[in-house]
Design a protein around this nucleic acid. Sequence first.
DNA 1: AATGAATGAGCCTTCATTCAT
DNA 2: CATGAATGAAGGCTCATTCAT
Lengths: 215, 215, 215, 215
Amino acid sequence: MSTTPRSRLRAQKTPLPHAAVQQDGTRRRILEEALQLFANEGFHGASIRTLAKAVGLQPSTLYSHFPSKEHVLAELARVGHEAHHEALREALLSAGPGPVEQVRALVRAHTLQHATHPQLAVVVNEELYALAPELAAPALAQREKSSALLVEAISRGVALGVFTPPEVLVTAAAIATMGLRIPYWYEPSEALPIDRLADLHAELALRMLGVRLSP
Amino acid sequence: MSTTPRSRLRAQKTPLPHAAVQQDGTRRRILEEALQLFANEGFHGASIRTLAKAVGLQPSTLYSHFPSKEHVLAELARVGHEAHHEALREALLSAGPGPVEQVRALVRAHTLQHATHPQLAVVVNEELYALAPELAAPALAQREKSSALLVEAISRGVALGVFTPPEVLVTAAAIATMGLRIPYWYEPSEALPIDRLADLHAELALRMLGVRLSP
Amino acid sequence: MSTTPRSRLRAQKTPLPHAAVQQDGTRRRILEEALQLFANEGFHGASIRTLAKAVGLQPSTLYSHFPSKEHVLAELARVGHEAHHEALREALLSAGPGPVEQVRALVRAHTLQHATHPQLAVVVNEELYALAPELAAPALAQREKSSALLVEAISRGVALGVFTPPEVLVTAAAIATMGLRIPYWYEPSEALPIDRLADLHAELALRMLGVRLSP
Amino acid sequence: MSTTPRSRLRAQKTPLPHAAVQQDGTRRRILEEALQLFANEGFHGASIRTLAKAVGLQPSTLYSHFPSKEHVLAELARVGHEAHHEALREALLSAGPGPVEQVRALVRAHTLQHATHPQLAVVVNEELYALAPELAAPALAQREKSSALLVEAISRGVALGVFTPPEVLVTAAAIATMGLRIPYWYEPSEALPIDRLADLHAELALRMLGVRLSP
DNA sequence: AATGAATGAGCCTTCATTCAT
DNA sequence: CATGAATGAAGGCTCATTCAT
């Protein structure tokens, strides 16, 4: 009854993270367009034909670059998780040794990543289920490692008596979750620039952990 | 390369909320099975054939009960949003007049709803994009009203000087978001029963709002 | 439902006949692999990609050696029919002038050819229909000449009163047919070596023609 | 370079054997057209689209009647082998107890079957390789049983001293083979009607077995 | 000779849906 | 209400082939 081009996100087209930039020309263009399509219409909702048309190729040509539609998603998942993990790791490295600084750094990086690459965040978080287990595995492993970084920082803070969360894992989940929904409601604006959002999320995270910053 | 029955949720099959129980037998069984399928495989990933088989009917028979596949999703969305909104309203009614009590009641109800009906939560939150605007509209309207309830409670607390969030809307989003991801990681257990999870989320919400409960 | 590598023949990989040996290296390797593939999976069932992989080349490279997939089959057909015809001609030359000796020589050669080159026999006999008429024509012409050799030998035997078949053409067809099915059931063994099979078929042929050898 | 509608057989369209006549209307028409197509262009050379068009249906409609293209072939194989086996069995039943009569009856039935249903014979003999093993299995089992009938009759004749073949199995193979190639060269004519062909093949078979009928 | 990207037609099959029964 | 045959569009993917390098 209705031919509906509906879109899941408010975000405009955003570039791939640096991790994927080095890829060869056509392959990269395929990834870029697939990112938009999978983000907006879902993996199952986007067709190879639509993707090919978006890239300006014949459907069959896609198979010179990826062995299947699933592999395109798998590559996006790999790129997305890698970029995310790298961002967290760098944040941790440039933060001081204190748990407060570290959590702040982690949350800021997490937030910035999701606000800067909303489509990638959505695809990586919502469409992974469409992947065969063996193709999803690498991404899931990296995801585990990323969330461990936060849990460890929190645990150290608890051990040091700096953090007093009501329960560590539930609180860690709550903190990580704040970032995940960003693509669905947030749009950068002068009133709320990305960097300010990152600060706010860090502040909220620390509040959940029982840290009182301003009296 | 892979024949993969992959599932998005850890949750087992859960019943429809009371709001949908009154529906006629077959129609209700269709909704129940559609709920499982849309939750696990996505709206586009689940086919009318699969749904029919799950219900024990021929595909064509579904059209005696719903005018289209989209309408099945729309009905689930209606039911889900209605149940959710109703839960929030009741929570608010049975809470006292204080903002702390009200936020606690709202967050608890929000959490309970998502933990008790994880499939419905997922379908309602992730699959609405597959609906034509006119079919999604009622659900989106109700969603607006629901989130307004929280924002209002927070705002009154701010006005009364009870709450001191760093920023009202971002904080409200963070609080609401805690609930939305529950289906993806939470499973009821003795160590963390649903009611305890609700308490924890309420506590975390109040912390974000600057309320110090235990000294 | 099934990913099935099925094979039509029991025969292992066999070499091309001498007639084709003189061909240049890569071109010959293409013919050799095509022979296996066309024999086992049929002309339409084997793809240029599979063939290229078997040879260790890219699909496009095949076109440096043959103008099309059909031409590969045509060349196999040519080689096969030529080798077959050559074998019959040589057999006839080294046989004495008597019809019995000649039929024996022809049948033996026919049998040996089919037992020694089962793949080629299958391709040449079963896959020719996949060729455009103009490409199939040379092979069909040679086939005509080959079967004429047998019919002539028989006819002379009849004229001389040595052979008393119930009907010349049907008997000739029956004799020729014995060889054609060899690839489907025969495997060389100590109990039934190729040469013995050839003798048996010759004996059977002569019996059909009414010749009583052993009293 | 060439769009070639080539045909493997000289035979015109022939009906399905009685065994398949009882099938429901559309399903049967699919089988009938598939028989022509698979016989003339091979299983891989015939497409679902071509088949659908020949039946006057949409391609998708075929899947209301058969779960896959392979299953259509499997059903033809079943029907063909069943009809063939049935013909042999009936021939044996109406023959007297003597080995000569029995071989004559078997060969006549075998020949009649192949001359009357040439396309079925071709499909059943040449296209079975395109079937997944589990789908081909029933047909292969029946084939085994059918050829056992001939071998048994011959063996009994040998035991009784009536037959003196040079070697039982090779002779049996030669006898059975005569029938298999009929579709490729035989066309019913006044000069050589089907029944006469059957007599000739029976005569040739008995000659191979060492039986001298007319002095 | 060989490559790899690209093509356009075509592959088998599944899709949501309709309709006569 | 329920069915089963039918539809027409679209699904992911493979086909043989071309061409610039």
